[in-house]
């Protein structure tokens, strides 16, 4: 009996000493947390994704509270709502958050590209691609079996005439479709950019022209007409450097096949903000 009692007494004593040490330490070492920082931290989503460039939500809240940054729009998952909330707490001006939207880099629908074979298999792009690269004559373009449509959690994608289209008003930029696409022709872009090359073919111009009336033929007209040298033709396809692009649309106006598109790709968050 005494053995048990000693054991209980000793362990309880050690526990009590530990508790006392921590209690005293928590009083002595108390570091006051900035009130504003706590408020901002509560507004942030807490995903600690690091998209803001700081070490998690705590880091961003601290930087804002201590005035190291005046940008309220760095939280991408939180989007404009968080930006507005932060602006209210800090008294800074709310800035627009740049969201990502998915875009399909192919416009070669049934009217523009011919079929090279009849495919009667599983209703899936991944399966169709395994049979000679799909039934379409273009081996780069949209296969049209809707793998992207199936994974989209928001129903933002529809297949029209054998080509996937993204409703950017509904798209939240999660990127699942880009991962699901076996052709790799869906990519995320910032919703402030307005110019999009809607072709992914890396074939030479003559070969593209034979099979698709809409494909990039690498004529370099866009390259020549761009005032900021933002367009470059690489691997027989026009590529836009969005850091340089000023959304002027000169490339689209001069494209002989019309595969460069100028449009408003505003995502769902921006749309909501406009409604308000």
């Amino acid at each position: 009996m005494t053995e048990v009692l000693t054991a209980v007494a000793v362990v309880a004593a050690i526990g009590a000493v530990c508790a006392a040490v921590l209690l005293v330490a928590s009083k002595l070492m108390f570091v006051p947390v900035n009130e504003k920082e706590k408020l901002i931290r509560d507004v942030l989503p807490g995903a600690n994704c690091g998209a803001c460039g700081y070490t998690g939500c705590d880091g961003y809240a601290k930087a804002l509270a201590e005035g190291q940054t005046d940008k309220t729009n760095l939280c991408v998952p939180g989007a404009d709502k968080v930006s507005n909330d932060i602006a209210q707490i800090t008294g800074l001006e709310a800035a627009d958050v740049v969201e990502m939207v998915a875009t399909v880099r192919c416009m070669g629908d049934c009217g523009k590209v011919g079929k090279k074979s009849q495919y009667r298999g599983a209703d899936s792009c991944a399966a169709a691609k395994m049979l000679f690269g799909g039934s379409s004559q273009c081996t780069y373009g949209c296969l049209g079996y809707g793998d992207c449509q199936k994974v989209c959690p928001n129903g933002a994608i529809c297949i029209e005439n054998g080509v996937a289209h993204v409703n950017t008003r509904i798209c939240t930029g999660c990127g699942l479709c880009a991962k699901a696409c076996p052709q790799g022709i869906i990519a995320l872009m910032e919703d402030v950019d307005k110019v999009l090359v809607t072709c992914s073919s890396k074939d030479k111009g003559a070969a593209v022209r034979k099979i698709c009336s809409h494909g990039c033929i690498a004529c370099k007209k866009c390259e020549k007409n761009c005032p900021t040298q933002a367009v470059k033709v690489e691997n027989n396809i026009a590529v836009i450097d969005y850091d340089k692009c000023i959304n002027c649309g000169e490339c689209a106006k001069n494209c002989p096949v019309g595969c460069i598109m100028v449009s408003d790709f505003s995502g769902i968050h921006r749309f909501e903000a406009k409604e308000e």
């Binding site: 362990v11 050690i14 526990g15 530990c18 508790a19 040490v21 921590l22 330490a25 928590s26 002595l28 070492m29 570091v31």
Partner: peptide, 20 residues
């Protein structure tokens, strides 16, 4: 059990000291 208790307390304590 004693070691776990002591180590956990110690680490907490050190964290507080470092923070301050």
């Amino acid at each position: 059990i004693v070691f776990i208790l002591v180590i956990a307390t110690l680490v907490q304590f050190v964290e507080m000291v470092l923070k301050k």
